[in-house]
């Protein structure tokens, strides 16, 4: 019941939503066998001023692993809140966005002594991103670069994502000045 109320409140205050597909790459120690992955997210945006937004993002990322096993790789589903700040104060152009959250579900399928072993985890998520918001005709676009890390069991999965996304307006930025 309380979750339903919370969801309804969030929907009421969210003024925009992103949706995108991007390309991502696992980085860090022992990740050379990972090929490029794919990621998708939906992001709710609550505009708090002309220059800044609070964001709520649910993503799903998959990384493919070439370790001699069959169908090996890592998949994660992070849920994050963030603060997006546009550097020129207009809500468009270059921005920075730190985020923090929780990995709802993660699994790594790895080859262990010739066998595929599935290792499930959750973990704390932290991310730092930058991007450029602009209009192409009347279509608002967001070209962005994110570095994200999930920390659990004394290790971390780190990845970089590059994406071009579009977003849907549910209200005008000027309305919430």
């Amino acid at each position: 019941m309380s979750k339903g109320i919370l969801t309804a409140v969030l929907l009421l205050i969210i003024t925009k939503a992103h949706a995108q597909l991007g390309i991502i790459k696992m980085v860090g120690h022992n990740t050379s066998n990972y090929s490029y992955g794919v990621g998708a997210y939906v992001k709710g945006i609550f505009t708090v001023s002309q220059a800044s937004d609070l964001t709520l993002e649910l993503g799903a990322n998959a990384f493919f692993l070439n370790d001699g096993g069959s169908g090996d790789g890592t998949a994660v589903v992070p849920l994050k809140v963030g603060y997006r700040y546009s550097l020129n104060g207009t809500g468009m152009g270059l921005y920075v966005e730190p985020q923090i959250g929780y990995n709802i579900y993660g699994v790594s399928s790895v080859n262990v002594d010739g066998y595929t072993q599935n290792l499930t985890f959750h973990g704390l998520v932290a991310a730092a991103g930058t991007g450029y918001l602009f209009l192409l005709g009347n279509t608002p676009l967001d070209l962005h670069l994110h570095y994200e890390t999930i920390v659990d069991h004394g290790g971390s999965d780190n990845y970089v994502s590059l994406g071009l996304s579009f977003y849907l307006h549910f209200g005008k930025r000027d309305d919430v000045q």
């Binding site: 120690h29 022992n30 730190p98 290792l119 932290a126 920390v151 004394g154 999965d157």
Partner: peptide, 21 residues
């Protein structure tokens, strides 16, 4: 804050799967 995230995460020397194994 953004740079701290990058620096702190790089302190962990293994992936989650490697740590679990």
């Amino acid at each position: 804050a953004s740079l701290s995230i990058v620096l702190l995460s790089s302190c962990l020397k293994q992936s989650i799967a490697d740590a679990m194994l």
